[in-house]
Amino acid sequence: MTEGLVSYLPLILATFLLAGLVKGVVGLGLPTISVGLLGLVMPPMQAAALLLVPSMVTNIWQLADGRNPWPMLRRLWPMLLGIVLGTLLLGGWLRGRDLAQASQWLGMALVLYAGLGLLAVRFHVRPAQEAWLAPLIGAATGALTALTGVFVIPAVPYLQAIGLEKDELVQALGLSFSVSTLALAASLGQRGELLQPALLGLSLLALVPALLGMAGGQWLRRRISAHLFKRCFFIGLLLLGAELSLRGVL
């Protein structure tokens, strides 16, 4: 498995550099871009295995802003628990199964996410609704994580809907992505062939361009329109998702 990946090493490094750059500018995008682009040349869950180390480290970087994470953790724990359970339960059920349409599912998830972003769709969740909605959102996010390796839908729209301030939203996204990454690692561990030492070594190597890209993105964020950049990001995701969705259909 990993021998074939070596031929894709330049693409892997370039992909994580771009994904880190986007995350540095808009605060998200690492899993969607990395798994989406690499999903063009390899199975999505193999791309997700390469994502593990860069995702975990960049999310910790995003969280390390000096604010206490416990208040947010107390608020979000039902959703986070749902993410873990959804990822592990569906991941366990998928073990040993051949997901021939995994790329199409990934493409549809990217199209949905990009469409919501381009249309500026905003939901509103009242505090009284969080108690029952948060676990369902978490479970759905976990299921899509186990299926596609991307953990933005529906967690990101939900977090945008519960009335968080800008800094709180960044912290909440960091927590959600960190828990999703750990749950994804555990799910891939259930499918032992997807979590080999050599593959983790490539994931560790991908951390370098991801960190360089994130640092560059944070520098760039102070000099460009984040709104315009995010719009370009969603258009790119829409095109990428459409390509993956239609692959094998046309």
Rank of each mutant, 00 (worst) to 15 (best):
F151E: 06
A100G: 14
Q46Y: 01
F123W: 14
M72C: 00
L147E: 06
S7A: 13
I162Y: 07
G4W: 06
L37T: 13
P44H: 06
V179R: 04
F16Y: 10
L144P: 02
P10R: 11
V53I: 14
G149L: 06
M214I: 10
R97S: 09
V208N: 05
R95A: 09
L205K: 07
V53R: 06
L52C: 06
Y8L: 15
M108H: 02
L195N: 09
A226S: 13
T145K: 01
N68L: 11
R221V: 10
F234Y: 15
G163H: 06
G117H: 05
K230W: 02
F233Q: 07
W70G: 04
L50A: 12
S103M: 05
M45V: 07
M79F: 05
T58D: 04
A143R: 01
F233N: 00
L175F: 07
G66H: 02
L202A: 14
A120G: 14
P54W: 10
L164A: 04
R122Y: 00
Y8K: 12
E193P: 11
I12T: 01
Q46M: 14
A146G: 10
R67E: 14
S187T: 09
T141W: 05
F151N: 15
L159I: 08
D167Q: 11
Q62L: 00
L173F: 14
L51H: 12
L40W: 03
G107N: 03
L28H: 05
C232G: 15
G217Q: 08
A140C: 15
L17V: 11
F177E: 00
A14I: 06
I137E: 05
L88T: 08
L90H: 08
